[in-house]
Write a protein that binds this DNA or RNA. Structure first.
Lengths: 338, 338
DNA sequence: ACTGGCACTCGCAGGGTTCGAGTGCTAATC
DNA sequence: GATTAGCACTCGAACCCTGCGAGTGCCAGT
């Protein structure tokens, strides 16, 4: 049965091309790899693989390189790989002495970019619903206020609201006290009702509505889901994989959080632990020649946020997948305890 | 007096090279520019300029390009330029509807990168000393606590501390209440004393010291001074100015906040409104072929933080300086009111 | 002090050639 | 029928050579 060998040939081509970044020919394959067949046989297989659209040759007198479909087939059939021990240790030491959530995310993204030697991307964790612990109302200037919401799970969200008028200091303090009474101890659902009642109290100040909205928004999950990244210099390092003018758009796409968020969002819920998008599968022009390896993380049961690595389609998929999987797992544990 | 003309020649060379990115020759200079002299005269001037180290020729049969010293002389003698009107409007609209401090900084850095078409860098504003308005102590797990300090100027700082033991809930609440009494209303200087007294009270819990330290640190200016940047794709766009492998180190230096912070720090207090570091003046290997244009901003009187643009030495200095100056000015105004 | 003229230098672009890796095909072999 | 050896063929990369022209430095003249 030549089916199996064809797959072996494909895998050998992928691995060879990934490690040397040069098209691989039948002869080199036959000698360096331990497939026990001659170059001619491999050539026949290659012809079939090419017909199936899994490999291509850049020009007539060159070896073959995998197409996006080729990488896809490779990724789908390769066995999950274990992470190297030193890397495991690196993860533990790196993440263990983080001081707060920001620090955890910051460290994770750097760590992941080092392990994968790609651009690492980490989405801020969305924490579960939790009760409001305290609301702090601070006056800014004369007609604006800062709303700080501290939730029971140790999250702090803040935003400013325009009051639309200039209340007296006494009035301001009273409202702040009342607001706390109405808000503290509630999880978002009852909080909304409780604050609605508070706003419609007889004699309530007109600017209460704005403040209440801000509190609810902050309690609900707060600010927009943000994404941080690191290791962009790895793109420059891999410049042989990109036309010289392809790096700019990639950098733009990274800063343009929106694109990334949409893409990561699309990748959730595929069921597997690690999801991979290859080349054109990203559905993003700027990322047509890049691949993304992503995994969900979060408290046990729900993997509510994503993290991943982005690099040229010519990347070490097994290694990257292992690193992403491992960091996601450790990060889940950290978020769990936080 | 040929002194003046020589300077004019230098400026013409700089401007020509910046706009075309090709070495400029005596002939082109004489015809396109309105210096009323012949190419031969210009050549003589060029010979002198070259002797002074202000210009150089990449190879014998090519025109001249400015050296770092040449750019320096140009920058030092060029008059401040006004910002174009559409740009002025852009600044106003862009910054006016920011919702909080994060948003202001985020918008500023994007704006600046668009205006200058360079990489923009903004340091988070350090606000003035102000009194502690409230300290929130939230328990995390059993043996850690989150410390949130809200200051009178509407800043929120947080950090976590390990308690080293597991106090009872009652004890925890009591300490939290006492801590507030001891801390609220104090600016950093008296705060330190007040908390020291608090820590050494008879019967005080042992973990009070750790908490007090965290509060002081938060009140003092809080977390480390951070730097955000945007527009890195402009580096790729300007790839003609860099050897292909020079972009990686630059990206690294940007992510490596430390380097940037040191550099920006060195640039403060030069007296002028806009400071410029050209090429090797950055004292940073990775940035040897880049220039930085920076300006301080902050509440009136003190310009406590910095922002700037970073790009290839071959950049439009007058335009960049104007944009940096303008954004710094507007941002100062915003921070003032915040 | 400036200018016109002139000989000189040297990088760059274009064209031609060689070299060799890699292929596809066909006929022989297991 | 699958595999292999052999062979003619293709075509890009590298190299060399050459001519062109931009730009220069210098010198004599104004």
């Amino acid at each position: 049965m030549s089916e199996d060998r064809r797959r072996a040939v494909l895998h050998a081509i992928v691995e060879g091309y990934v490690s040397t970044s040069e098209p691989v020919g039948s002869k080199a394959l036959a000698s360096s790899r331990h497939l026990g067949v001659s170059p001619a046989t491999i050539r026949n297989d290659m012809a079939i693989l090419e017909e199936e659209g899994l490999i291509a040759q850049p020009h007539t007198s060159a070896g073959r390189i995998p197409t996006d479909a080729g990488y896809r087939s490779f990724v789908d059939h390769v066995a999950a790989q274990a992470l190297q021990d030193p890397h495991k240790r690196a993860i533990r030491t790196f993440l263990s002495d983080a001081v707060d959530l920001n620090d955890v995310v910051e460290r994770s993204v750097r760590l992941l970019s080092q392990l994968t030697r790609q651009v690492a991307v980490v989405q801020y964790p969305s924490l579960r619903e939790s009760a409001v612990r305290r609301v702090e109302l601070v006056r800014i200037g004369t007609d604006r206020a800062l709303v700080v919401v501290v939730s029971a799970d140790a999250r702090v969200e803040q935003s400013t609201v325009a009051l639309g008028m200039e209340p007296s200091d006494d009035e301001f303090e009273t409202v702040a006290r009342d607001l706390n009474e109405a808000a503290v101890g509630h999880t978002p659902a009852p909080l909304i009702e409780s604050l609605a009642r508070w706003v419609s109290r007889p004699g309530q100040v007109v600017w209460a509505a704005g403040v209440a909205d801000a509190v609810v928004a902050a309690a609900k999950g707060g600010t927009v889901r943000r994404v941080v990244f690191a290791g962009t210099s790895n793109l420059a390092r891999a410049s042989t994989d990109f036309e010289s003018d392809a790096i700019g758009p990639i950098l733009d796409a990274l800063e343009e959080q929106v694109v990334l968020l949409r893409l990561l969002h699309e990748m959730t819920g595929t069921g597997q632990d690690v999801a991979v998008r290859i080349g054109a599968e990203t559905n993003t022009e700027a990322l047509a020649r890049t691949s993304i390896v992503a995994a969900g993380y979060g408290p046990t049961g729900e993997s509510s946020s994503l993290l991943g690595a982005l690099g040229p389609t010519r990347m070490d998929y097994p290694g990257t997948m292992a690193a992403v999987r491992a960091v996601a797992r450790y990060l889940s544990r950290v978020v769990e305890n936080e």
